[in-house]
């Protein structure tokens, strides 16, 4: 019986991540159960589907757990300063617009110390894809609250419960002018792969917030029994697909984060705008 079922589900060859990973760099530094590796795998599958070559991709990151990603992947890679990934990436992209620039950043890196760069990058609508790994905590420094830590949540600097309201990364991106805004999770890996592919293909600033688990610092502080419970609670039960949201009764959507493509519009892209400016400056425009 099981063999028959299996035969029906024709298995494709497992995805060959080694094609995109630098040899000898694994195991990565992320803690057991950390979702960053899951997100990376979704990203690599999306990149594979995008048809981009490794030489065409420049991956830029800031500082933090997720920002270690560029060290593992076989692209042009730039691990920069805390909060500044988008500013470095802007320099790379404007200097060489033919590069496809992907930024890997965390909730603290992008939304706290890098908040100014985040809103202005979105405003310029420069063609880059920004992945904000949101795990509600500063992991690299050992578990302090971040701009996405829920009110009341415990961390090593909010031992009485966090009193700061959260930034909604996607609302912030949309309000700042990003032309593609989406949210995914480390639980919904295939959906995330599709979302990331759409983000990479989009012309303009694409922001994808990825709800991701930090079992060691967020999980333990907030009494999650296991990484599995975290993924079920936060990523599955804490989110709802934007496609389903309309069909569900309001009480089933309330308090949940929407998943999928939340906003996509067309607006002039910065580098293309600059090319027009060059033509004008040279009397050709």
């Amino acid at each position: 019986m099981s063999a028959t079922t299996a035969a029906k589900k024709k298995l494709s060859v497992p995805f060959d991540y080694d094609k995109y990973l630098r040899p000898g760099k694994l195991p990565h530094i992320w803690c057991p159960g950390c979702g960053h590796g899951i997100v990376l795998k979704s990203l690599l599958r999306a990149i594979d589907k995008s048809g981009l070559t490794k030489d065409e991709i420049c991956m830029v990151s800031g500082i933090g757990c997720s920002s270690r990603t560029p060290g593992y992947v076989d692209f042009n890679t730039l691990h920069t300063l805390h909060g500044r990934a988008l500013a470095y990436a802007t320099g790379v992209k404007l200097a060489k617009p033919e590069l496809n620039v992907i930024i890997v950043t965390g909730d603290g890196d992008a939304l706290a110390i890098g908040g100014n760069h985040f809103i202005h990058t979105c405003r310029r609508n420069i063609d880059m894809t920004i992945l904000v790994y949101s795990n509600f905590i500063y992991g690299m420094t050992g578990g302090q609250f971040s701009p996405t830590t829920p009110v009341g949540a415990l961390s090593n600097t909010s031992r009485y419960g966090n009193i700061e309201p959260v930034f909604d990364c996607c609302d912030l991106a949309k309000a700042s002018g990003a032309t593609f805004v989406a949210r995914g999770t480390a639980y919904h890996t295939l959906e995330l792969e599709r979302t990331l592919l759409a983000a990479i293909k989009h012309k303009g600033t694409s922001v994808v917030e990825i709800i991701d688990e930090c079992p060691v610092y967020y999980g333990r502080n907030n009494k999650f029994k296991s990484v599995t419970q975290m993924m079920e609670d936060i990523e599955k039960n804490g989110t709802v697909s934007v496609k389903q949201a309309d069909k569900l009764p309001p009480e089933k959507v309330q308090g949940k984060l929407l998943r999928g493509i939340l906003h996509q519009v067309e607006r002039p892209e910065y580098c293309e705008g600059y090319e027009k400016l060059i033509a004008k400056a040279q009397g050709k425009g």
Partner: peptide, 23 residues
């Protein structure tokens, strides 16, 4: 192994590139 349905969820959700399912 006999119960495996080849759904690959293990591979998809493994954060550590540590498990693969082949035919």
């Amino acid at each position: 192994l006999e119960a495996c349905t080849r759904c690959q969820l293990c591979d998809l959700r493994c954060p550590d590139f540590a498990i693969q399912v082949f035919d």
